[in-house]
Write a protein that binds this DNA or RNA. Structure first.
Ligand code: FES
Ligand code: FES
Lengths: 149, 149
DNA sequence: AAGAAAAAGGATATAAATGTCCTTTATTGA
DNA sequence: TCAATAAAGGACATTTATATCCTTTTTCTT
């Protein structure tokens, strides 16, 4: 059920850049890290992988930064999950056995299969664009880590 | 979606001991580790926590080992999950924000809430006894880690 | 009482995830 | 061409999860 922090950072970074798609400027890692209250250098490392995967684009140098490309908004969540959690995220057995396998299922397998598939469906169908909200200010607020509940 | 290895080891250990509930002997950590192909010392540490939580019982000394008690078979999966993954497993936000909170939801929250709740239901309702199979030999086989698919 | 067996407990080791820092490379504008 | 800026890349530090080992305590058998 849980994803790594890397996934959270990646998705939030992508969403933040996507949200500002109409601004002429590119978005720097410093801005993203600050607005999301996320460790700057670690985020940089993750965003590099995001760009390498083609989910976002970036340029170096003055006026450089991150910006969306033709793939960004249509990227399914699943792509981002597999990027940060590894390609085997959905075929690892819940009980730490080698491969999740319905022909030789572990004791938990059949109990959760339905919901596991359901989540996989959702992750495959939900696009970055589906997660953006109209109210930008409110959305940015919901992207920032908040200590207090 | 994924649990830690500790959870897999714990549940499999519990299931193995439960499966042998009709045998007069107690089950040693060596036997469990060997049958499940799991690291012996690490498993010992986890089983200690399982016993401390009252899910299994154990005695030291000659003829000692692990055995089920009145709670074992009726223990819901959820109890074991919270034991190994921590009590906040189901209220941590998927995007690494402070608290999963439907009044101030992250962008992913509403998308997955239904399935998250569904899994929680299943984990709360599924008991150790529900995971045991009649065919012991087959079941033990399904408990053992298998390298090859 | 003595010895053996087995869990419990604690100390340490290794690996992976997370986080920080510094250097290099690319881009822009003067 | 030069200086400034920002991502990319790589080295290193810290923390957490996983794994191993050794000692202590308990229990049983003789
Ligand atoms: S979850 Fe264990 S085999 Fe599928
Ligand atoms: S999953 Fe993020 S707030 Fe609930």
């Amino acid at each position: 059920m849980t994803f790594s922090k890397s996934f959270g950072y990646a998705l939030r970074g992508i969403l933040y850049v996507s949200l500002l798609k109409d601004e002429p400027r590119k978005i720097s890692i410093d801005e993203i890290a600050e607005k999301l209250s996320v460790p700057r250098h670690f985020l940089g490392k993750i965003m590099k992988a995001v760009v390498k995967a083609g989910i976002l684009s970036s340029t170096r140098g003055l006026q450089g930064g991150f910006f969306i490309n033709e793939k960004t908004l249509g990227t399914p969540l699943l792509t981002i999950i597999l990027l940060t959690e590894g390609n085997n995220y959905f075929n690892t057995c819940l009980l730490s056995m080698r491969k999740c396998n319905s022909s030789n299922p572990c004791p938990l397998h059949n109990k959760v299969e339905e919901h596991k598939d359901g989540l996989l469906q959702i992750y495959g169908q939900t696009l970055v664009s589906d997660l953006l909200q109209d109210d930008k200010a409110d959305f940015i607020k919901s992207l920032a880590t908040v200590e207090a509940a």
